[in-house]
Amino acid sequence: MNDTQASEPMLEINDLHVRFPVRRNMFGRIAVENHAVSGVDLSLMPGETLALVGESGCGKTTLGRTIVGAQKATSGSVVYGGRDLTKLKNREKGPYRRQIRMVFQDPFSSLNPRMTLRQVIGDPLVATGEASGTELEDRIAEMMRRVGLSPDYMDRYPHAFSGGQRQRVNIARALIVEPKLVVADEPVSALDVSVRAQILNLMRRLQEEYGLTYLFISHDLSVVENIADRVAVMYFGKIVEVADTADLYDKPAHPYTEALMSAAPIPNPAQRGRKGRILLPDELPDPTDPPPGCSFASRCGYAEAGRCDRDPVDLVDGVRCVRKNELDLQGIVKADV
């Protein structure tokens, strides 16, 4: 085991389920449940950026929150450093809260408006009593410099800052305790287009400096292609495909991945209308009563009735599709700019 350490996953998710009660019956028992995450297997390798893509409601945020311990799992395990994080007692959680950190989407609502940057960024150190006085001050200043903020702003309040600067504050707050894994939930989606590139480049640089592993949750395919080493595509609570970024974009193996790639707008008017765009029908299955077979079958252009909608299908070689060996799917149309 010791000699293969580098290729050991740092985090392993096994058959993870998260269900939310929707309605209870007259005895208080759960009558209807929403399966937000329904049987996810995924592993993260040290130092990589794994992107989790999918559309709203597919369960990607719930999965991220479960990994950082902000959401209780219904069943399954999240193994990190030899421990199942879903089974930790509260008093055991401390060290894991430092090693696995989260950066949220909305830089406006995720910062306490009554705390100065010094308080926001230094809070994790103060809370654990790890640093105080000049040491605390020095570490906050150093962290601010690393994320491209001037330490002169330490005593200002978040309202004085733009979205991009606030996201830098969020990143500083996440990194000050030197975590191993950062779960970033749509970290650039709420930012102006001209500021996104700054934050993506910053995240890439910090990853190198600190040897970080990222789980990067996003719905934006071009952002994901830019930052991720590997991509997991999530649909209806399940991973339907996981592959290296280049493979997934150039040669998708799941029809849903193909549809996503085809839907992404190409910023080149000369290529308008050149590709046959796959237009998915809207018929989504009911999340409280998922179908027995493939949950994408009702919208899939390749689905075979009586087969795809009936037979349960597992993630085999990174693809969850019974027809995966029969299909020849199209990747992205590259913009020639």
Binding site: D192, S194, V195, Q198, N201, N226, Y249, I266, I332, A335
Partner: peptide, 25 residues
Amino acid sequence: RALLESVPVLGRDRGRDLPTVPGTV
């Protein structure tokens, strides 16, 4: 020009640092 350069384009910008527009709006 800066806006067009700083937006990642499918198939073009895999894994590379993007040109940025300095500062904020």
